[in-house]
């Protein structure tokens, strides 16, 4: 018990140190506040922004793209992953394509998406989906191929019709792996949607950062960056909670 509270203290130490260093740099005049605003000012500005309607609209735009892209990635990733794991012909087709596309920097496709889908939501959603797809697909595939053959035999022996084995055997058994992939995919979605908005957009959190950068408003550059990072943390935490709840029967990893 004391051990874990020690760990918390130990873990909090570097975070406190970073904040102190940040404050110290400004207080002792090593960094001008125009370049590095003090933490207090940043968090004050953040609370103001969170209450403002325009900022909320930017957050909403970002969230919409984030979830739309992520949802596409989950549906495609899980179904393709399972299909590739259970069907040899699909595997033969999907595996080499994935091998080629997975290490490809998806952000390079963004200009193509812009040309094909326009500068609105669609191109950004597409980029998010493309980036989040592969971790989800690969973990699903990995989880589904590692399902024990004997588990499937047991399900068949218990009278489960072969069609249902996929839903009642393979999918639940691959669930831990799938959810891990989703967690990675979700954080990636957060990062990518922000970057896409920074590269070209007229709204969203990324756009807020770019606008602030053009006018050298250091405070306003920190606010969207911290917001998206917090968003990533919160979503990651939520999915982790969901995972823990869904997987209560599995041995903890």
């Amino acid at each position: 018990m004391t051990r874990s509270s020690n760990d918390i203290l130990l873990g909090a130490a570097p975070i406190v140190l970073v904040l102190l260093l940040w404050q110290g740099l400004v207080s002792f005049g090593y960094a001008p506040p125009t370049l590095l605003p003090p933490p207090g000012q940043v968090f004050l500005r953040m609370s103001q922004q969170l209450a403002s309607l325009t900022f909320q609209q930017d957050v909403a735009a970002t969230l919409f793209r984030l979830f739309a892209g992520f949802a596409i990635a989950v549906v495609l990733g899980v179904s393709l992953g399972i299909a590739a794991a259970v069907s040899p012909p699909i595997n033969a087709a999907v595996k080499p394509i994935v091998r080629v596309l997975a290490p490809l920097p998806k952000v390079a496709l963004y200009p193509a998406f812009l040309l094909l889908l326009g500068f609105g939501h669609e191109s950004k959603i597409m980029l998010v989906a493309a980036d989040a797809l592969f971790p989800i697909l690969l973990s699903t595939y990995y989880g589904a191929t590692n399902v024990e053959q004997k588990l499937i035999w047991s399900a068949l022996a218990a009278g489960t019709p072969p069609r249902d084995v996929l839903w009642k055997g393979v999918l639940p058994a691959a669930m831990p792996s799938i959810l891990t992939g989703c967690r990675i995919g979700l954080v990636i979605s957060c990062i990518v949607v922000f970057l896409a908005e920074m590269i070209t957009s007229t709204d969203g959190l990324g756009h807020v950062l770019v606008t602030a950068a053009r006018t050298f408003q250091a405070v306003d550059m920190f606010v969207p960056l911290i917001t998206i990072s917090l968003l990533g943390l919160i979503l990651n935490g939520l999915l982790q909670g969901l995972r823990a709840y869904l997987l209560r029967g599995f041995p903890s990893v």
Binding site: I191, F194, L195, L209, A218, M221, L225, I228, S229
Partner: peptide
């Protein structure tokens, strides 16, 4: 972990 690293570019360029 969830901080978009490439997004730090404008801030780092400022410094």
């Amino acid at each position: 972990y969830p901080v978009p690293k490439a997004a730090l570019m404008p801030i780092i360029m400022l410094w």
